[in-house]
């Protein structure tokens, strides 16, 4: 009896150690498999970001990146002979920050509303639904630069088709200079962005809609609840998580917007975003130190807003929702 049990314990011990070593070698293999990916990520993301933050504290110049001096926080804020200098005292920076926030909030709100409408329409069954779904994907597939150029042509002040349409409908009395008029330039940018990214929003919300259980709806129909009430009481609360995630993805994109604004309205102050401002300093004015400080600030703004949004909105991003 006693002997048998020792054998059994020994056998169990052998099995455990084998299992353990297998587990350990598995973890070692996992790190080996991760290494190339992590190295590349470190090379293209970690290192450049660290350098950008470092450059933000120097007076580096694009023409010669090897010689620069450490100047502390002077790029951000400096007091010299009765005057404030640096990013935080630069009205152009604050203008860019205001433009970016305005653009992000307005465009994402419109996109969410339109995206919800399109998603609800796509969720209904009707003949030709797949054609509609395909059509909606087209703006998403078009490169941003191309959509900026296409819309630039449609918004042309003299020969643009949009002016022609609006004149024909009698909405405007004379042609409008969409991209040149300071009051309209931002509206034009928002219009193009809404056109380009609403499909993304609609598809994400549609995916959320298609996961809804059908029994609540049947119960509501049996009880004769008004469809509008069903939407606000059942549908909206149930797809809130999907909308929240879609909104944060879009917000992050909107806050770093560059291509569309750069191509549609160039370096105009009326629409300049933080990314456009930072690149202008970095490349056009060759002020790598100052531009890097602006980039770092933009990075901080986005990081802080993301954390606030995730915490306040209780968005579940961890481990794929598990």
């Amino acid at each position: 009896m006693a002997r048998q049990s020792t054998i059994r314990t020994e056998a169990a011990a052998v099995v455990t150690t084998r299992h353990l070593s297998l587990g350990r070698s598995r973890v070692r293999a996992a790190w080996l498999f991760l290494a190339p990916m992590l190295l590349v990520l470190l090379l293209v993301a970690g290192w450049p970001l660290a350098r950008t933050i470092y450059f933000g504290f120097t007076d580096a110049d694009l023409s010669d990146l090897s010689s620069y001096e450490f100047i502390g926080f002077a790029n951000y804020l400096e007091y010299d002979e009765g005057e404030w200098y640096g990013l935080l005292a630069d009205p152009d920076w604050w203008n860019a920050a205001r433009n970016t926030l305005y653009f992000a909030v307005i465009s994402v709100s419109i996109e969410t509303t339109l995206g919800l409408i399109i998603a609800l329409a796509l969720n209904a069954s009707f003949p030709g639904r797949s054609i509609l779904r395909a059509a909606v994907l087209i703006p998403w597939a078009i490169p941003t630069v191309v959509s900026a150029k296409m819309w630039g042509w449609m918004l042309h002040d003299q020969f643009g088709v949009l002016n022609d349409m609006l004149l024909g409908l009698g909405i405007i009395a004379q042609p409008v200079a969409w991209t040149a008029d300071p009051d309209l330039a931002m509206a034009a940018v928002i219009m193009v962005d809404v056109w380009k990214t609403t499909p993304f929003m609609a598809l994400l919300i549609l995916a959320g809609l298609q996961m809804l259980p059908s029994d609540c709806y049947e119960a509501a129909r049996v009880d004769g609840v008004h469809p509008v009430k069903v939407f606000f009481r059942i549908t909206l609360p149930l797809i809130r998580p999907a909308i929240m995630v879609a909104v944060i993805f879009r917000l992050l994109d909107a806050l770093r917007i560059f291509d569309l604004i750069y191509v549609l309205t160039s370096n105009s102050a009326d629409t300049m975003s933080m990314s456009v401002y930072a690149r202008q300093q970095l490349v056009d004015f060759q002020a790598v130190g100052y531009g890097s400080a602006a980039s770092t600030l933009l990075f901080m703004v986005i990081a802080v807003l993301t954390v606030i949004y995730i915490v306040a909105g209780r968005v579940n991003l961890g481990e794929g929702g598990r």
Binding site: L49, V288, T296, L298
Partner: peptide, 11 residues
């Protein structure tokens, strides 16, 4: 979530 411009000078 990195803004592209944040790695521009380092890159």
């Amino acid at each position: 979530m990195f803004p592209q411009v944040a790695v521009l000078s380092g890159m």
